[in-house]
Design a protein around this nucleic acid. Structure first.
Lengths: 168, 168
DNA sequence: ATAAACTTTCAATAATTTTTGAAAACATAA
DNA sequence: TTATGTTTTCAAAAATTATTGAAAGTTTAT
């Protein structure tokens, strides 16, 4: 396969994976493009490469900055802004974990905490079933949260070394 | 909070979380409803509880069965079908991991494998940057795959015991 | 065989999400 | 200041995804 074709294939696959996991397809594609780009790119470069509008490119780039996945670069003597992706896959994973933890996991943990406190009649199966499911899900969510927390602190080699030790 | 209100809140929260992670909101809500229901429910029960149409209920229930999260029950002397959710949160996690691994991770691993094999000019930064990103992402994906694999085999207590040991 | 109870299908519709593109805002240079 | 290059905004349009509901299909009972 040619490099050009391979790049397109990667951008497509990354976009599809993103959309399957609740990340806007275009956002994932722009990220993919910047990931395999040795140079920082301008908005125009991105618009052209992915055939998207200026408005879309601008909003997507802003979102990616919000996720901590890319950053703006200014080149001396130039007025245009350039965008550059962190290429460290471990940093990327941590950044995504950090944002999803904050945006999605924490609100759910809060609600589960409230729901765990609901009182009821221990003789009512409606209550006991509810209570047990909520308690169990809460435990799982806390474990997932701890795992994310550990990822945020960990060095890659340490993290995978330890996790993979589990599977021996 | 009343139990009835708590149930609604849980169904709503579970639906929201699902939709943020690429799972149809209604599917997550039906699952939530069955999770906190001590009895198996009929399609009509579900239609009424969640105010959804018969067609939607039917398709959603079929999907949930496809994900291995609920099953049909037949009651002696009755013609209606009843639906019942596995309440074991660890089983649920494994089931979701299993399906997403199969449906999403494996296709990506396949593509990454192909892309890893692309040859090019080691002096061309376009090639070396592409190569490095793909290789790194491939490694990460393989690790995630292994983690899922381990989950599928593991007993809950063993799994979390081992994983949490990592965070001491 | 017919009817009744129940389930499945799927074209049409509705709801939601994403994208566009042109205008407005902003920044820099002349 | 004015012109020029660049970025941002956001209402409207397009695309995608989810839902409806009625007809067709299936199963069981009589």
């Amino acid at each position: 396969m040619e490099l050009a074709a391979a790049k397109l294939k990667f951008i497509e696959a990354w976009g599809k994976l993103g959309s399957e996991w609740g990340i806007n397809r275009t956002m994932a594609q722009v990220h993919a493009l910047l990931l395999i780009s040795p140079e920082a790119l301008t908005t125009e470069d991105i618009m052209e490469s992915l055939s998207i509008s200026r408005g879309n490119a601008n909003m997507t780039l802003r979102d990616l900055i919000g996720w901590g996945l890319i950053e703006k670069q200014h080149k001396a003597g130039e007025r245009k802004e350039y965008f550059f992706a962190d290429k460290d896959v471990w940093n990327i994973s941590r950044q995504v974990a950090k944002e999803r933890k904050k945006r999605e996991l924490e609100p759910v943990l809060k609600i589960l905490g409230e729901l765990s406190a609901v009182e009821g009649d221990e003789k009512d199966p409606n209550y006991t079933t509810f209570k047990k499911s909520i308690t169990d899900i809460n435990k799982l969510a806390v474990n997932v949260d701890k795992t994310f927390e550990a990822m945020l602190k960990a060095e890659e080699s340490w993290f995978w070394g330890s996790v993979l030790k589990v599977f021996k």
